[in-house]
């Protein structure tokens, strides 16, 4: 029996060693090119970020970024295979190579980066916990919520953040907890609590579900930091660069005013920044293993960051989330791309 176990263990180890070897031998970019499509770990359902529409096509801000990466490599937004991942199996799927990139509203935290063998490439959405209250309550700031009852989902970081915030500001808190996010909001809508708290992006989508959406406002305070961004496996810097710069290219395009509509005209522009972005000058695409018009293709198919934002979560969508922290740095936000040069 003992020898049998040893043999089985040995076989398993040898197998996993060959797996690791096979993964090391080939870079992710080459593997993706060889497969002919990108495998993107996506959210199984989050309004505005990753959601199938009536025809079953995936849409959302995270989904757009996946498609943009596919465009950068293949010049074709359909060459993506979306692998919906639950919160439990998302990191394993990335580590095991089941997906090439994980764009699944994952929060960039230190422990995830240092101990899970993955690397965040940037932030495509700055989220944070916020509050929603009834207008009739006449509250303009979260600091006036002392003594208010707050509906919150049980056992989440949201609950902990809430307690921390109230304690730090010496406010009296009456939390009313529920097991699921659906129950939590239903209770708030039915008048069980004065305020409702979850991530700000969630507040906007939940508000649409209220029986009278216009009776509720989202307070300006954001009490936690939730930088959401794509993650890749550690150890493949070329791939890390590629995913990182696809996002930066879209932000740069917005900054330079290059849109889906005017990208062909802009290609003739004399602005050196635009020339470098769209590949009419320099060999920036080649240095990443792509064609030089990689960024042109991205904007041509998917638009710039601002367009993608408006289409999926902003004014062009039912969510109508304000740009806020996600505005360009030139407009008071945090979206800042290093220069392409």
């Amino acid at each position: 029996m003992k020898t049998l176990i040893t043999a089985a263990l040995g076989a398993a180890l040898a197998l996993s060693a060959t797996t690791a070897f096979a993964q090391q031998k080939q870079s992710t970019l080459d593997a993706v090119k060889q497969k002919g499509f990108l495998q993107c770990g996506s959210n199984p359902g989050l309004a505005g970020f990753g959601l199938p529409d009536a025809q079953g096509n995936w849409t959302g801000l995270d989904v757009d970024l996946c498609r943009s990466i596919a465009v950068a490599i293949f010049n074709d937004p359909t060459k993506v295979k979306f692998v919906p991942l639950s919160a439990k199996d998302r990191f394993t799927a990335l580590q095991s190579g089941e997906v090439d990139v994980l764009i699944r509203n994952g929060t960039w935290t230190m422990s995830r980066e240092t101990s899970l063998g993955l690397e965040f490439t940037g932030v495509n959405y700055y989220d944070g916990q916020g509050f929603m209250v009834r207008k009739s309550l006449k509250v303009a700031s979260a600091l006036e919520l002392g003594g208010a009852s707050v509906c919150v989902q049980q056992g989440t970081t949201t609950e902990l953040n809430l307690a921390d915030y109230f304690r730090a500001n010496k406010l009296e808190l009456k939390p009313v907890v529920f097991a699921t996010s659906d129950d939590t909001f239903k209770a708030y809508d039915a008048g069980r609590c004065d305020a409702f708290t979850t991530d700000a992006s969630g507040l906007y989508s939940e508000r649409l579900r209220a029986s009278k959406p216009d009776d509720h406002i989202v307070l300006p305070e954001i009490i936690s930091k939730e930088p959401l961004g794509p993650a890749v496996r550690k150890g493949d810097d070329q791939w890390l660069d590629l995913v990182k710069w696809v996002h930066f290219a879209q932000v740069t395009a917005e900054e330079l005013g290059v849109t889906k509509a005017n990208v062909d005209q802009m290609r003739k522009s004399e602005n050196p920044d635009v020339k470098r972005l769209l590949g009419t000058e320099g060999k920036f695409g080649e240095s990443m293993g792509l064609s030089n018009d990689w960024a042109y293709n991205i904007v041509k198919h998917m638009g710039n960051y601002g367009e993608s934002f408006e289409r999926n979560v902003g004014a062009g969508s039912p969510l109508k989330i304000a740009r806020g922290l996600n505005a360009l740095w030139t407009k008071g936000g945090l979206q800042y791309a290093p220069p392409i040069r």
């Binding site: 199984p44 359902g45 989050l46 309004a47 505005g48 959601l51 199938p52 529409d53 009536a54 809508d189 989508s205 649409l208 579900r209 209220a210 029986s211 969508s317 039912p318 969510l319």
Partner: peptide
């Protein structure tokens, strides 16, 4: 059904 019901295009009580 779960994925469709959270679509903001159909967000209603």
């Amino acid at each position: 059904i779960e994925a469709a019901r959270i679509d903001p295009r159909w967000a209603a009580p």
